[in-house]
Simulated scan of single mutants.
Amino acid sequence: MRLGLTYVPTFPPERLREVAIGAEAAGLDELWVWEDCFEQSGIASAAAALAWTSTIPVGIGLLPAPLRNVALTAMELATLGRLFPGRLVAGVGHGVQSWMGQAGARVASPLTLLEEYATALRRLLGGDRVTVQGRYVTLDDVALGWAPSPPPPLMLGGVGPRSLTQAARLGDGNLLGTAMTEEEVRAACDAVRAARDGDPHPVVVSVIVATGPDAQERVDREVPHWGRAPGEGAAVAGDAATVAAAFRRLGDAGVTSVAVHPTRDEPDLAGLLRFLGREVRPLL
């Protein structure tokens, strides 16, 4: 199992540098940045994190398809893919529908949009010249001048049954949501396996984690921000053995990568990174 950190936009952009450098120094397998309306840009955050580090892969989880023209997304991902070969992981999804409405970008059929979007994006990143007239995606003889080789992995997000199936079919992996219980993660992984006829498929999940003497209190304060109640099992609090055991159970369910989501009141991000790298990772 791969172990990483999610840099959530509850922290300001100016703290990303220390976290990216710290995640790499701690020996974590990956760093994930988010594009949340109206907080931080996924592309800008990924570019900065990649430039500040040397080896750690950086994933974007995720870019909302309704908000971004597919040609622009392809251009940006291709540029990052060529600047930092082999280190970018792209993520695309429906976006939070209420935010899409606020931005005037909400569509009637998010599934149709993502189908057209992911198909066109993969072709563009693969170096194809694309002409398509879809319900939402329209391209007329578009090709990237500097397509990345190889193209970055394209992860797709979604948690509903149809979204899980679509992402398993179209993407190079599934991005699950945050604050999911172990039972919900297991059900999602089962749905992904069914959609893939049992073939292995990467599954990334973001897990709220806290350690230290006040760990439980902090996760209990955090989970309501994600629509969960304390005690539902949507976060992990405890020492390295407790955290690693929870992650191993997720691995048994089918998760291939856990991205640790710090609480918004995490008092020591550098310490959390060291804890994950030195104490948790050896137990996985």
Rank of each mutant, 00 (worst) to 15 (best):
R249D: 12
I208S: 00
A235T: 03
R218K: 02
A215T: 07
R218W: 00
Q216F: 04
S257T: 15
V209A: 15
A253F: 09
V209F: 12
L250N: 06
A245M: 10
S206A: 15
V209E: 11
R228E: 02
R221T: 06
A253S: 14
A245F: 11
D239H: 07
H225C: 13
V209R: 12
L250P: 04
G231Y: 00
E222S: 05
A244K: 11
G212V: 08
G231L: 00
A240V: 10
R228Q: 11
A240L: 09
A235V: 05
R218S: 04
A215V: 09
T211W: 07
S257I: 09
A234G: 04
A240R: 10
G251W: 06
R249P: 05
G238R: 04
T211D: 11
W226E: 02
V207Q: 11
D214W: 12
A244T: 07
V205H: 06
A253Y: 06
A237H: 02
G238F: 05
V243C: 11
G238D: 06
D214E: 15
G227E: 07
P230G: 03
R248N: 08
A241N: 10
V236P: 02
A253V: 06
P224Q: 03
V243E: 07
A210Q: 05
P230K: 03
A253Q: 07
H225I: 13
V205Q: 06
A237T: 03
R248G: 01
D220C: 07
G251F: 07
F247A: 06
P213A: 15
W226Q: 04
A241W: 08
V219I: 13
V243Y: 09
R228G: 04
G212K: 10
A246M: 04
S206M: 15
D220E: 08
T242E: 14
V243H: 09
E232S: 02
E222W: 08
P213M: 12
G227C: 10
I208Y: 01
P224F: 01
R248I: 02
F247W: 09
S257K: 12
S257L: 14
R249W: 07
G212W: 05
V219A: 00
F247G: 03
A210T: 00
E232V: 00
G238Q: 10
A229E: 13
V255K: 05
V255F: 12
L250Y: 13
G251E: 14
A229P: 05
R221Y: 03
R228C: 07
V243R: 10
G233L: 05
V255S: 04
G254E: 08
G254C: 11
A237F: 03
R228P: 03
A241R: 13
T256M: 12
A210K: 01
D220G: 02
V205G: 06
P213D: 15
A241V: 13
V205I: 12
R248C: 05
D252H: 15
A245H: 12
G238S: 13
